[in-house]
Design a binder for these strands. Structure first.
Length: 877
RNA sequence: GGGAGCGUGGUGGAACCGGUAGACACACUGGACUUAAAAUCCAAGGGCGCAAGCCGUGCGGGUUCGAGUCCCGCCGCUCCUACCA
């Protein structure tokens, strides 16, 4: 045992963590240049980015997890010799600031920048390897100035459109919502039922990139499969035909109905036409028919209610109108109005072929409409084939279909489209689900759209010299609606073209615009001449590793993919792939148990006391508490844990270590206080181990003493094997596995320490190598502790954050002897230890000699010997 | 309805390309140290069995010398999405 020293017996993170944070800052360790460097500074680039936070007030555990994961990647890649860009900023426009303004009478800017200051402090306490010199907020005039420039460039390139359209109007927030922001008919923020209104709106023409946005998903091999799938579905490409059915008799001036179908091959199996209740022809019919009008009114009433959609009862009304069939002269079919036909997909009308579409079949059976099979399943007899309650939707052979008879479905599609085009009755088309992106928001706290409306000149862009269009500061939030519109003077300007009085656009941009290019701006955040500095953005983009929540799988990521294409096509960057994020990782949520008091109120974890007997009670009142399942931390369920408190109690390294240790990062994790306490004990253990080892270690860089010992060989083997396995785990995002390997290594190091204490000089030498390696291996996860230990082991040798990752010696990483499992008849009967690379005969002999194996063989003859070198022996008797 | 993911000890989870299932951690238990507690250290632990052994990765089959891993058929849970023609 070493003598009791004066050194403090415990690691003090409270003084240590700020000290190293200061050291990194003073040395600008994480600073990188905008433009590529030459000479010694020229390293390969690596851009790590986590989704930037909305400055809501305080950071939460989701942020801690997100930024810990990113920081591990950033620090690891830096150690691997990359020049790492790792910036941070604020997604700072948005409605909550206006709500706060209304509730607390603070200006949105004041509220936002105060929150940013608080959250910046909290993030800095986490010890993240960020280049803070690049920080910006999207509400900075410098940023939205550049965004207005981009908008005008997009406008010039024909990527911006203003048109009247039916919009989703949120009656609570008094704003328009994108389709993506309407969830189950309700506003994504307010939860209010969304109304349809017609308004002039600004659109970004994302649909121009339909094909590329879809096709390029195939090349994103470092994206999660399910995100690509979600985007594929969202873009929603379907190929088919538009077919025109002339009405037997015009109604309200309408002479024909056009439908979109993906199954033009089944046209000969037609039974009816179904119109959306919102279809113009439905309205025309209703004008003549009170019952039709009543049916439409009923659909509209049902339409919005979620329960009705869930019930999904198919309703229809026969208008009495008839259409002719372009391919079947003389035949006529009824025109129905049906509640399940959507006006905003395809043409708002369908043709029904019940035999080969389940929904059409349900409808036909309910209303007694004809069912004619036109596709015969393979191996079926035409005479006997009939449709019961199940439609046949697969490939087969066409029947009852004139010139299509005998063809398979794909060939029939091609053939029928050709015929329709010949007759002028239809045309082959590709239909997309994706719409243009409506970005107009009737809000104050967003980027002003730099346009001016003039009575005589129409819509005029704000000239470059007048940018930025700044938000006025003197606004009030008393009235509902848009404060920019209420402002007494802001919107009144002279027309840039004719100088007559004109009116500013008072809409601001959807905040998703702000986050669609921030990652590119980070490459040259202070560039003033243009939104992006080409030399910088072409060097750093794309983002090599993007990390964030799955909740942005569609909107943010799709909009960003559109923006990089639009920026490329307007000359702002090169980016041949068009893809902003080469690698994407979506982390799971942070969960916690939920607690309910006797009165049914949710309780914070702090309010709950757990007894030694497993009982759960209220910490103050002692009343019984019901423990609910673990769910994602949320304010409403009060199952939140404040990261600030955890960091104050245990330190940032502990919080970071626990975040990584418990489960795979893509899965939801459970935050437990016991787990955090366990991580804290480990930080103390590592520190203590180094303190205990210091007096036993040879000088740094000393040559290995003479012949090794068994203990030193074991120690060195553990060191090099751990370097190899931790490296591998970090490369594959298996951070929990990396943590487990470090724990194993710590256990092995404790044995090395015991040997060194026993006077084994070789073990002492190996122990130094082990501890120095350990500093590197835990560095990405526990950067402060790593620096502290490194400074103790190698005083005056700089920062671990600036040193290269250790290399594993492959020969040492392999063990000299290996344990082989011996099975008899496939059942494990014993293990033997053999030298690595031993001859098969030697191994088999040893296996058969093992006593337990002998007993299992029981003298029976061995029929077959299976030997997998280095793994297993299986003897069949 | 459609799609994706997941089912392994008390808990979170390991397990390369089919080769010793349960690494590592948390919790619990016993012991040491202490006046005591905390901290720390040591030890044991999938289930059944005194033991040899048997059974064990949601359930049922299959392939294989050998299956958590591959194939077929079910069950359960979670998330996403939805009258998309």
């Amino acid at each position: 045992m070493t003598e009791a020293s004066d050194a403090p017996a415990r690691y003090n993170f409270r003084t240590t963590e700020p000290r190293w944070q200061q050291a990194w800052e003073e040395r600008a360790t994480f600073r990188v240049e905008d433009r590529p460097q030459s000479g010694a500074a020229a390293k390969p680039k690596y851009y790590v980015l986590e989704m930037f936070p909305y400055p809501s007030g305080r950071i939460h555990m989701g942020h801690v997890r997100n930024y810990t994961l990113g920081d591990v990647v950033a620090r690891y890649k830096r150690a691997r010799g990359f020049s790492v860009l790792h910036p941070m900023g604020w997604d700072a426009f948005g409605l909550p600031a206006e709500n706060a303004a209304r509730e607390r009478k603070t200006h949105p800017a004041r509220w936002t920048y105060d929150n940013i200051a608080t959250m910046r402090d909290e993030l800095k306490r986490m010890g993240l390897s960020l280049d803070w010199s690049r920080e910006f907020a999207t509400c900075d005039p410098d940023y939205y100035h550049q965004q207005q420039r981009l908008f005008l460039d997009f406008h010039k390139a024909g990527l911006v459109d203003r048109r009247e359209s039916a919009v989703n109007w949120d009656p609570v927030d008094h704003t328009v919502l994108a389709n993506e922001q309407v969830i189950d008919g309700r506003g994504w923020r307010s939860g209010a039922l969304v109304e349809k209104r017609r308004l002039a709106q600004w659109f970004l023409r994302i649909t121009r990139y339909n094909d590329d946005l879809l096709a390029a998903l195939g090349g994103l091999d470092r994206w999660p499969e399910r995100v690509r799938l979600m985007q594929t579905n969202w873009i929603g490409k379907s190929e088919g035909a538009r077919v025109r059915f002339p009405l037997a008799r015009a109604e309200g001036g309408i002479e024909a109905v056009e439908v979109f179908t993906t199954r033009p091959d089944t046209l000969f199996g037609m039974s009816f036409i179904a119109l959306s209740p919102e279809h113009p022809l439905a309205a025309a019919a209703a004008a003549q028919d009170a019952a039709a009008a009543a049916f439409i009114a009923e659909c509209r009433r049902m339409g919005t209610s979620e329960a009705a959609i869930e019930a999904a009862e198919k309703q229809g009304y026969d208008t009495g109108l008839r259409v002719a069939h372009p391919l079947m002269p003389g035949r006529e079919f009824p025109v129905w109005i049906a509640n399940f036909v959507l006006m905003d997909y395809g043409t708002g009308a369908i043709f029904g072929c019940p035999a080969h579409d389940q929904r059409d079949l349900d409808f036909a059976r309910k209303f007694g409409l004809s069912v004619t099979p036109v596709v015969l399943p393979r191996g079926e007899d035409k005479a006997r084939f009939a449709i019961g309650t199940e439609a046949f939707t697969e490939d087969g052979t066409l029947i009852n279909s004139d010139f299509l008879d005998g063809l398979a479905v794909p060939a029939a599609k091609t053939s029928v489209i050709a015929r329709l085009e010949e007759l002028g009755a239809g045309v082959g088309v590709t239909q997309w689900r994706l719409r243009d992106w409506g970005i107009s928001r009737q809000r104050y706290w967003g980027c002003p759209i730099p346009m001016i409306h003039c009575e005589s000149c129409g819509v005029v862009p704000v000239p470059e010299k007048d940018l930025p269009v700044r938000l006025p500061e003197d606004v009030t939030f008393e009235r509902p609606g848009n404060p920019l519109d209420h402002h007494p003077s802001w919107k009144h300007v002279a027309c840039p073209r004719c100088a007559k009085p004109a009116r500013r656009e008072t809409d601001t941009m959807d905040t998703f615009v702000d986050s669609s290019w921030y990652f590119a701006r980070f490459c040259s955040p202070r560039h003033e001449a243009a939104p992006l500095d080409r030399a910088a953005v072409d060097h750093w983009m794309p983002v090599d590793q993007y990390i964030g929540g799955i909740e942005h799988a569609i909107l943010h990521l799709l909009y960003s993919r559109f923006f990089t294409r639009a920026m490329r096509d307007t000359g702002h960057l090169a980016l041949p792939s068009g893809e902003p994020f080469a690698g994407l990782f979506t982390q799971g949520m942070v969960c916690h148990e939920t607690y309910k008091g006797a009165d049914g109120r949710w309780l914070y974890p702090d309010e709950v006391a757990k007894g030694a007997d497993g009982s759960t009670t209220h910490a103050e009142t002692g009343e019984a508490v019901t423990v609910g399942r673990s769910e994602a931390m949320s304010k409403s369920k009060r199952n939140t844990v404040d990261p600030g408190r955890i960091i104050a109690q245990y330190g940032a390294d502990t919080a970071r270590w626990f975040m990584l240790s418990d489960n795979p990062p893509e899965r939801d994790m459970e935050w437990t206080d016991a787990g955090a306490a366990g991580a804290y004990r480990f930080t103390q253990r590592l520190w203590r181990m180094v303190q205990d080892a210091l007096p036993l270690l040879p000088a740094r860089g000393a040559a290995a003493p003479g012949p090794g010992s068994a203990a030193s060989a074991a120690m060195r083997h553990a060191t090099h094997r751990t370097i190899a396995t931790v490296t591998e785990a970090l490369e594959s995002f298996a951070f929990n596995v990396a943590v487990a390997r470090v724990y194993e290594f710590a256990n092995a190091t404790a044995e090395g320490l015991a040997a060194a204490r026993g006077g084994d000089a070789a073990a002492g030498w190996a122990l130094r190598e082990a501890l120095e390696s350990l500093c590197h291996l835990v560095g990405p996860a526990m950067p402060h502790l790593a620096e502290e230990l490194w400074a103790a082991l190698a005083p005056g040798e700089g920062l671990i954050a600036e040193r290269a990752w250790p290399a594993a010696d492959a020969a040492l990483a392999l063990a000299d002897s290996i344990t082989i499992a011996v099975q008899v008849g496939g059942k494990l009967r014993g293990t033997i230890s053999v030298a690595r690379g031993a001859e098969a005969a030697t191994v088999l002999a040893a296996a058969e000699a093992e006593p337990n194996v002998q007993r299992a063989i029981g003298g029976k003859p061995i029929r077959k010997r299976i030997h997998v070198p280095g793994k297993i022996v299986n003897l069949i008797v």
